[in-house]
Nucleic acid binder design. Sequence first.
DNA 1: CAAAGTGATGGAAGGGCTTCCAAAGAATAA
DNA 2: TTATTCTTTGGAAGCCCTTCCATCACTTTG
Lengths: 338, 338
Amino acid sequence: MAVTIYDVAKKAGVGIGTVSRVINKSPQITDATKSRVLVAIKALNYQPHTVAQSLARRRTNTIGCIIPFFTGFFYLELLRGIQRTATSLQNDLILYSVDNKSNKEIFLSRVLKERRVDGVLLVSLEIDDDYAEQFSVQHFPIVLVDGDHAVLDSIKVDNIEGARQATNHLIGLGYPTIAMIDGQLKSVPARLRLAGYKQALAEHGRAFDESYFVACDFAEEADGFNKEAGYVAMQRLLDLGDRRPRSVFVSSDIQAIGAMRAIRERSLRIPEDVAVVGFDDIELAEHVGLTTVKQPTTRMGQVAVDRLIAKVTCKPGLDKEFKQKLTTELVIRESCGG
Amino acid sequence: MAVTIYDVAKKAGVGIGTVSRVINKSPQITDATKSRVLVAIKALNYQPHTVAQSLARRRTNTIGCIIPFFTGFFYLELLRGIQRTATSLQNDLILYSVDNKSNKEIFLSRVLKERRVDGVLLVSLEIDDDYAEQFSVQHFPIVLVDGDHAVLDSIKVDNIEGARQATNHLIGLGYPTIAMIDGQLKSVPARLRLAGYKQALAEHGRAFDESYFVACDFAEEADGFNKEAGYVAMQRLLDLGDRRPRSVFVSSDIQAIGAMRAIRERSLRIPEDVAVVGFDDIELAEHVGLTTVKQPTTRMGQVAVDRLIAKVTCKPGLDKEFKQKLTTELVIRESCGG
DNA sequence: CAAAGTGATGGAAGGGCTTCCAAAGAATAA
DNA sequence: TTATTCTTTGGAAGCCCTTCCATCACTTTG
């Protein structure tokens, strides 16, 4: 059978409390006893039973992460930031991955009642008001990542600012006309990116021109953020003939890839005929030389875990609400010229 | 305070053992008592404390997964298969991700002693003999994924067969000359893929021609499986001038991407001048129309977890060694013509 | 009708730790 | 010296379950 704290205590000739204190680095232990215990621990090759510790301490040193079935680079990088930070703060990470909506609810309620994790990260998923309420009332630590809710802590990227950066880049390069291709307007990021686009135009005294704006409301899949939608949307802009825009800000890289294909199919060149900026900085973007807006994904994971664990350990200054927005970064490649 | 099994027992007017039996679906409970208990559980909104269950049962219903810091699609898909299968078998998944080698050892020894997980998956990582020994002796369930060791269960893809498929495809299309670009020969998959290539050639009575084989031994990073290495290697083949190969099997997609660039830079066409097959089926492969060998990645995760949990639960027939090889699948796109 | 068997139930013990309280010992003050 | 305070230590109780054993209420059998 496995060696327990009692074996160590007997071997070292001390009480179990003393052994426990040594393990937990309690200060009030004489160096002599401490080293006796340490020797016994080494001799028996003892390691505390984590599960028993969790039960007694009412702390698992584990955080949960509810994340939609991770496709794409974004989630990989996010997970990397989360994992790395958790490990560095001596926490383990349990992954709950969500296939469909009902799944999410199950995980939320499990997390809340099983007490298997000290806190939870909810990534890219909406949370109902009554669940939010429960977490809030029970003081169960939760941080929303790439999402938001009135009563809960959240961290996300500043979509408006990112869209502004992209648009300003095109303005700065002197393009006379700047179109925008957006996702479905019912999606939150799509609306925010539109707002940033409009804001940048307004700041430079440019009017928003309805005919230069295409929302992919016709495309269902992935809220319009997909290759085909970008392709179709770009066709519409190119159909303007002479009035076609000189440059376009596309609200996601994957749409931009589709848009670029549409441009090339008409024998137009990028950026000489039409300049393109994307959003996201997916892996493909580098390959096709797409200038785009990079989200600080790894960082987001890190900040989220830091905050979550601060809440778990009741660090001071946690009452104030935490609504962090991280700023994006423009990655300049070849698709805009300049 | 949280509601415990005692509260439920009192409310239902039964003993705690009875409540426990209801929770664990023990058969010998009358329907009447069972429903009384169920009512009480519902009324109190009771849910068992997972940690306490783990301690009492000496089973955590959790598996660990030690995985190198997941870059690339391969790990995403693998993780998807692992996660999905674990969830469907009522197990949670703890992710230990490895940044560097020492990290791996730490996780291995923690897993072994902390008893926080019932079993562990070791992905794409080598394991020292003495650790393998320890797992073996202690009967601690472990399954190697995309790796191997004499005394441990393992599951991986059949690299030899995959390389044969790729080479045979080129042979079948009638290409007179078939070169190969490989990773560093010190890497195991590189050697296996070479073996498959040679085997296919031999089966069709073709000689292995040293001058048509380039191993990327000059490239350090990622065992030679990277874009630049592929680019350089292809240059060498193209430098053969008139004797340059009519087709080439590249041992990874990422190298193939580099190779394709080298081909295009000499104003040669794919597949009209040089046909290319890759290996891996990364996301980019589809985008560039690369014919390639797809690994059954998700499936591998699934099989691994199935096996691991079978071991944990001591299903019969586990003594025989388990060394599974999954077969690859050729994905035909445009880079080979035909 | 008693004896033996069957099935459902209660609850103590045990899983391995932390923590609190009391006690012993050491150090200081009077 | 004795009284007082401070440190260090031992170990019981508690964290919340599962499981085993004893018990009790019925059946069945002879």
